[in-house]
């Protein structure tokens, strides 16, 4: 069995890193197009390290939303990390120190979690830190490149690239929706509710964050009630 070294962590993190560069590139573009300076976009990526969570949060900030709305939206969107961290807490070595746990928990993302739980046996701090380091650098680098490139691109390309981030979201949710009826129901229900809220006079005043919360909680609760997941599969909600 290959030992779980720092080096192996860095290596295992490389594919995640490459994926992150492209997603965060789109995020960086979105942030600077919305009017944020490059260093703020980079700062968001380096302190948050989430895709959907920081996109929604940044949109709310650009819209001038209140802090409570920003906090609750971020909370709901990132609630799944709670489950992943909980699962990882059973997977890390018992000897891992408190400080190591406090530091390394910052790097729990869907992809890093997915790779970490695939390892045989307990995870040590060396391997885990390597596994976080490469994707983290990719996330920051992509954001910087995307944010810096925005001003250099012609308007026609900027408009077309506006859809890139949503394209990635669809690439994450469509394949599992194709394979699983409950996931398909969740995707359709949440999307339909969201459209309903946006297009119904009176409801459309509801701002972005609250709308996402309402749609996501309703659709997820419905599916959890209708199709409860089996013991272990609940830990594989793989989306960044």
């Amino acid at each position: 069995m290959e030992t779980l070294s720092f080096r192996k962590g860095v290596k295992d993190g490389l594919p995640i890193c490459l994926g992150y560069i492209s997603v965060s590139f789109a995020f960086g573009m979105m942030a600077t197009q919305g009017g944020l300076p490059v260093w703020v976009a980079l700062g968001i990526s380096m302190t948050n390290l989430t895709s959907a969570g920081q996109v929604a949060g940044t949109n709310l900030i650009l819209a001038g939303a209140g802090y409570a709305e920003i906090a609750i939206t971020t909370f709901v969107i990132n609630l799944r990390y709670f489950l992943m961290s909980l699962s990882l807490s059973q997977k890390v070595e018992d000897t891992m120190t408190g400080l190591q746990r406090w530091v390394l928990s910052f790097g729990v993302t869907d992809e890093i979690f997915a790779v970490a739980v695939q390892q045989k046996g307990a995870i040590n701090a060396r391997y885990f830190s390597g596994l976080i380091l490469t994707p983290y650098c990719g996330w920051a680098l992509g954001t910087f490149l995307g944010a810096a490139a925005t001003g250099l691109l012609p308007a026609s390309l900027r408009s077309a690239l506006g859809i890139a981030l949503y394209g990635m979201f669809l690439a994450i949710i469509i394949p599992p929706a194709r394979g699983s009826r409950p996931v398909r129901a969740v995707v359709v229900l949440a999307g339909a509710l969201s459209c309903l809220i946006a297009w119904t006079p009176g409801l459309s005043g509801l701002s972005g964050g609250w709308s996402i919360i309402l749609c996501a909680v309703t659709a997820s609760a419905f599916a959890a009630f209708r199709w409860p997941v089996a013991e272990e599969s609940g830990e594989e909600g793989a989306a960044p």
């Binding site: 994450i172 999307g191 659709a219």
Partner: peptide, 26 residues
């Protein structure tokens, strides 16, 4: 129920974020 709920949340969130916002992204 809570574990199932958390399992479905990412898909619901991404879908609600994509629709209908994607239509005004270009």
């Amino acid at each position: 129920f809570f574990r199932s709920f958390l399992f479905y949340v990412p898909y619901a969130v991404l879908s609600a974020m994509t629709f209908p916002a994607i239509l005004s992204s270009t």
